[in-house]
Structure formats: structure tokens, C-alpha cells
């Protein structure tokens, strides 16, 4: 990472709510980068975004926001299920600029922001906040942030519970922000396939920790010891996953997609300890590696697997096909 280009520097962050603790020893983000954050509910994505938005101060550690474009709003956050101010669309979108007393060409700027999120200004500009559908509200809220041309735009689940048109409009707006204004973006989503289309890097979060980047699979504990120095954790359907000795009983294991072998029939005699039967749910080209990325549902959760295009053709892999996922206990490493 180029240290001169760092926009966010996080050191020894700790933030707790009840039993949950977000703990990030060190993390940095480059200016102009699009970062994706993925992880299950309660993994700490929204908490991290609130810290990055400077809405909260961490209980421990520090967050430095560097490399701000002069004269811009440093950072703004679009919350999950965003709130629209109780005023017409125009006043919602113009609110931030009015605060900055930047009211020159205000109407044109509002129009442009609405067009960026694919809302017809003539139709929507003077609508009341309660005359909008969920997707339209989401777009108006996004336009209210876009108009500020922030140095950093944080988006918390921007395409959760929205229709296809809104999802496409949000994706286009994200690309526009990056291309036209060099905005740094941090986006959380459960939708990995969507996230890969709008971000440069994806970080996985689990239980308040950043556990790895890219397409890694996360296997949470608790781990209990079995024979031959193996440790097991249970998947949602109680299938056991074998791993080598974890640092702690509740450690999180990381399984790289490249470590998983895909077979189209069950192999009985094989040294690998882990064999899972699953169904291919989705397949697409992985923009980072150029390989084929499979999303396989096995034992009640989704595993990401990378295979070459040649293997996919040879095995005739298609969505809906039943496959076996095979990996060694030692393939699981520790976060």
C-alpha cells in the first residue's frame, strides 16, 4: 500500500456494545479506492462505518482521516434504511449544500444529483418525502450525499431490500462518484456478487474482526478437540468441519476458495478430512482472479469456490448441479 495515498488509518480500534466488541488492530484505506465489507449480521460492518463516518469515537484507538479534497465534505454516510428529512425532495437533496452556504446554481446541482441516481427531476424534485416508494427514498437519500461530492462516501447495505432498477441506479451512481470525483468508497453488503462489481477489494468481517480479504470463507468457532489433534466446529446443519489446533476455542477459521477441491461425485477414500455435499447456486467470472467463482450451498451456508474455466467446462458445472467440496483440515488457517 502506498503510504502517501492513505486516506484512512485505523490503529488499535476497540468499540464495545454489550457483549459485542469491534476490534481492529490496524487497517488503512487508500484514497480513491472502493472497499467492500462483507460479513454476517452482527459482524461489525455498520459499527465500523459509523466510526469511519466520525459519528462515534472509538472507546480505544484512533482513526485518522487524511487526504481530504479541499473545500469538500470530508465524509458522509448513507445508512441502511436511510432517513429522509420531513421536507420535499428538493430540500432533502439541497440540505447539505445549504448548510455549507453553497447555493450557487443550487437547482441545477439538485437536478444533476437526481439524474445521477436515475430519478427524473421534473417528476420528483418537488415531491413530498411521504410520496416516495422505498427505492425512490433510497435514491433521494443517495442523491443528498452525492451532491456534496464528499471525499469519502460510506454506504451501508445500499442495495438491500431494493428493486432491480434502484440497485442498478445505485451501482451506476457509485461508478460515477469514483470516476468523476475520485471519491473513496466503503460499501457494506451481503450480496458478494454485487459487491465485486462495484469495489476494488472486499474485506470479510466476522464477530467484530476483519478476518480476511477477497473471497475467503469464514468458519466460526467454537472448536472442540477430537482424535488425532483435530478440532471440530459445527455448520448450521450440524455437519462437522475439521481443522488443526486453533489459537483459541472461539477463533475464526479462514478457508481460501483456492483450497477447495470440487468433485462431481463422492470420493470415499481420500486423505482430506472435510467433505461436504452441496449445490451450485451461482457462478460467474471472478474479476480479481479471472477464474470462475462458484457460490455453493452446503450444510446450510454458502461457500465460495474458485475453479478454472477449463475445469468448469470439463465438469459441466452449472447452477443447480450437485457437487462435493473437499478440503484438508490444515487448509483452514486462523484469523
Amino acid at each position: 500500500m502506498n503510504k502517501d495515498n492513505i486516506i484512512y488509518q485505523l490503529n488499535n480500534i476497540k468499540q464495545s456494545y454489550g457483549n459485542f466488541t469491534l476490534k481492529i488492530p490496524e487497517f488503512s484505506i487508500n484514497a480513491g479506492e472502493s472497499i467492500g465489507l462483507s460479513g454476517p449480521n452482527g459482524s461489525g460492518k455498520s459499527t465500523l462505518l459509523r466510526l469511519l463516518a466520525l459519528l462515534e469515537k472509538p472507546a480505544e484507538g484512533d482513526i485518522s482521516l487524511l487526504k481530504i479534497r479541499p473545500g469538500t465534505v470530508p465524509v458522509t454516510l448513507l445508512q441502511q434504511d436511510p432517513y429522509l428529512l420531513k421536507r420535499p425532495v428538493f430540500d432533502n437533496v439541497a440540505y447539505g449544500l445549504k448548510i455549507k452556504k453553497d447555493t450557487t446554481l443550487l437547482k441545477q446541482k439538485v437536478q444533476k444529483a437526481l439524474e445521477t441516481v436515475r430519478l427524473d427531476p421534473a417528476k420528483f424534485m418537488y415531491r413530498k418525502w411521504f410520496e416516495l416508494s422505498g427505492g425512490e427514498s433510497q435514491r433521494v437519500a443517495l442523491a443528498s450525499r452525492i451532491i456534496l461530492q464528499p471525499s469519502v462516501l460510506l454506504l451501508d447495505e445500499p442495495v438491500a431490500n431494493v428493486d432491480t432498477d434502484t440497485s442498478r441506479a445505485v451501482s451506476d451512481a457509485i461508478r460515477t462518484m469514483k470516476k468523476e470525483y475520485g471519491t473513496t468508497l466503503v460499501i457494506t453488503s451481503h450480496d458478494m456478487s454485487w459487491l465485486t462489481t462495484v469495489t476494488d477489494r472486499i474485506w470479510k468481517m466476522h464477530n467484530g474482526r476483519i478476518t480476511g480479504s477477497g473471497n475467503v470463507n469464514i468458519i466460526p468457532g467454537p472448536w472442540t478437540e477430537r482424535e488425532n489433534h483435530l478440532f471440530v466446529s459445527k455448520l448450521p446443519d450440524s455437519t462437522e468441519i475439521y481443522a488443526s489446533r486453533p489459537p483459541e476455542s472461539d477463533s475464526v477459521a479462514i478457508l481460501n476458495p483456492e483450497e477447495i477441491i470440487v468433485a462431481d461425485s463422492e470420493i470415499e477414500n481420500i486423505s482430506a478430512a472435510n467433505r461436504l455435499k452441496g449445490t451450485v447456486k451461482m457462478m460467474f467470472t471472478d474479476e480479481m482472479s479471472g477464474d470462475i467463482r462458484l457460490e455453493v450451498e452446503a450444510s446450510g451456508r454458502i461457500f465460495t469456490v474458485l475453479i478454472t474455466e477449463a475445469s468448469a467446462v470439463k465438469m459441466n458445472i452449472l447452477p443447480g448441479k450437485m457437487v462435493y467440496l473437499i478440503f484438508k483440515a490444515t487448509s483452514l488457517t486462523w484469523a
Binding site: A53, V75, T76, Q79, Y83, L85, I99, R145, L148
Partner: peptide, 27 residues
């Protein structure tokens, strides 16, 4: 709504503007 304060602040409001906007939302 608990999101009001965060929304107003992330749109750039500070100090008395946060208070006035909150009052306006509860008008």
C-alpha cells in the same frame, strides 16, 4: 427517529444547526 441525528450530522450539520434541524423534524 434515532436516524435523524446521524442523518443531519452526516450531511454536514454541526452545533446549533443540529438542534434547529432536529426541532424542525419534530415540528
Amino acid at each position: 427517529d434515532e436516524r435523524v441525528r446521524a442523518t443531519i450530522i452526516t450531511l454536514g450539520a454541526k452545533g446549533s444547526r443540529v438542534i434547529m434541524s432536529s426541532l424542525y423534524e419534530a415540528r
